[in-house]
Design a protein around this nucleic acid. Structure first.
Lengths: 324, 324
DNA sequence: AAGCCGAGTGAACAAACGTGCAAGGAGGGG
DNA sequence: CCCCTCCTTGCACGTTTGTTCACTCGGCTT
């Protein structure tokens, strides 16, 4: 980028700030602002879009503490976690649901992440959707670390996962640490060997220190299997094994049962995500769920105490608290 | 308010929150939201206005720390204070200027005031304008205290000042403490006597403990005299005295010279605002100025170290840093 | 030097929004 | 029981805003 580009950039930011000020603080119309900035109304419209998209303008919703939704209260009482229920009409499709929850999370994520923090991020369709909308917030000294490997037998998976991570990193101005291993090893021994490598153990140590973890849930036996199951990461035999172990879901390739337990699930010796013990030591653990198909998985994750903050669409939330 | 009113109220808030969520987090159109909430688009529009007006939706402008306006930087360097320059076109009238600065301050004030804080507030046309726009923010245990008396020889002045204070108090859910004394006493002895009264000294002690002070500037010899001078609070002789003492302005009825000094200004023994020593011990001292007429006064206040955060319109800011 | 490319602009159109108004409804008083 | 009042609602209109498109203008390549 040339010098003149840079100053043009900063001019643009300056104008965007002024426009935002005039629009949001002084309630001028874009027309009036265009006049003050000696440009056209359309440019002001674009300037303001830009200001919102880049986080220059930050819109928060602060519910008066006495009025969180009934659902959020119920979930809080029942599971001792903070719930963020995203309103979604009941008739919405699962794709809609996911998209809308992801959009909401993307907008609110900045409130959980700040300078000098380390955030662990999983990947999958949920994370992908979030990454495509995340609103930037400038931080410094912050790090983003991939929670689990992404390769499978057909591809290194790097581009997909790295695209996701990259978008988060770019939005927060954070240093991104990729985790260049397959999602599942073929042999536990390879995993153990690699885990002893200094390059890998450096990443594991960083995972152990993270301040925020952001992840979705896998749910191997639901009708809409998540990305891990669709992408050829597992084989028939693996599914059978999961089924035998009565697995209901996973977080970052680590599987759990309905009661939250993980012991003696063979596949976990080959998965690459963080031990739940490590995860549970992370102060904020943000879990994003949409669609009732993931309900069993969600219940298991809650039993396992993997979640401190839950982002969930309204009908799934309702189903969660409905006594069965 | 009846029970059913209350629940209707909370329904309204709930709807407003949902609407805000759908509008600002999920980018739905009002039409779509109307559909989801089973109401008309106009109602949604009103609901959203309501949400903004009551502070349910909070819009902030966060300038990336490397791009405060050139003016704000200059002022910061020159005077060691934080400046908030409000963009206002040069050709705007003084009334416009005041109104626009006030609107900006009203929107941003919530960032300086929180639960369990004590805020001292002066009164006058500037404060009045701000009070009419201040965006609510619910706090608890917070107090608002009037900085100086408001009566004069013709009226107790209570209604005007109390209206202003009341609006702030209402917006923040804060307890309002009025200061039921005239703006200026006729005799210093009366002031001293009253100052020893427990009811008054209780207020003075609270002033000494305040976390934030919010005030405008008086400027007795400018062409647009502020409210204190227009309202019959001072007499000819007083003006003559001020002129003799080379006074350039006042903060809450305490006068100062161009060099910031106050010693030996007779009128100050009869004014009711806080000693500058008290004021200077307040952590945040927000001063709102608009119009170049107040420039001499502003320079004096800066010399006196009365200000930690300055809110000022653009052309006055420019004039402030212009070398004379 | 001509030409190509991409970023950015304003005009024009279409979509989305705010608001005055009349109608409807709940609550309170006569 | 009726009426009056005040508040809320949806409609219709005019305004404001988002977006498409054709165009311009530097910068870079051929």
């Amino acid at each position: 980028m040339s010098l003149v580009d840079e100053s043009a950039q900063s001019d643009r930011v300056r104008d965007a700030l002024t426009a935002a000020h005039l629009y949001y603080m002084q309630d001028l119309t874009m027309d009036a602002i265009a006049h003050e900035l000696h440009t056209s109304r359309s440019s002001v419209s674009r300037l303001l879009s830009h200001a919102r998209a880049t986080g220059l303008v930050d819109i928060q919703i602060r519910s008066p503490l006495d009025a969180p939704s009934r659902l959020e209260l119920l979930i809080q009482e029942r599971f001792q976690i903070t719930a963020h229920v995203v309103p979604v009409p009941d008739h919405a499709s699962d794709v809609d649901r996911l998209e809308r929850v992801a959009l909401s999370v993307a907008r609110i994520l900045g409130q959980f992440f700040d300078s000098n923090m380390v955030m662990g991020i999983a990947w999958g369709s949920t994370m992908n959707a979030i990454s495509r909308h995340v609103t930037p917030k400038q931080t410094h000294g912050s790090q983003i670390i991939q929670l689990n490997g992404a390769g499978n037998m057909r591809t290194t998976g790097l581009s997909y996962a790295s695209e996701i991570l990259g978008r988060f990193g770019y939005a927060f101005g954070a240093h991104v640490h990729q985790f260049p291993v397959p999602a599942f090893f073929d042999s536990p021994a390879t995993k153990q060997a690699l885990w002893r490598e200094r390059s890998v153990s450096r990443l594991l140590e960083m995972q152990a220190r993270m301040d925020v973890a952001l992840f979705g849930l896998g749910s191997p036996f639901s009708e809409v299997p998540s990305h891990v199951y669709a992408g050829g990461y597992l084989e028939e035999a693996d599914y059978a094994s999961l089924s035998r172990s009565e697995v209901v879901g996973d977080v970052a390739t680590i599987f759990f049962r309905a009661d939250g337990s993980t012991d003696g699930i063979p596949l976990n010796t080959r998965g690459t995500g963080p031990d739940f013990d490590v995860l549970r030591r992370t102060p904020r653990r943000l879990c994003v769920v949409s669609g009732t198909a993931k309900l069993p998985s969600l219940r298991g994750a809650l039993k396992a105490d993997l979640i401190t903050d839950l982002f969930v669409d309204e009908s799934t939330a309702r189903a969660l608290v409905a006594t069965i």
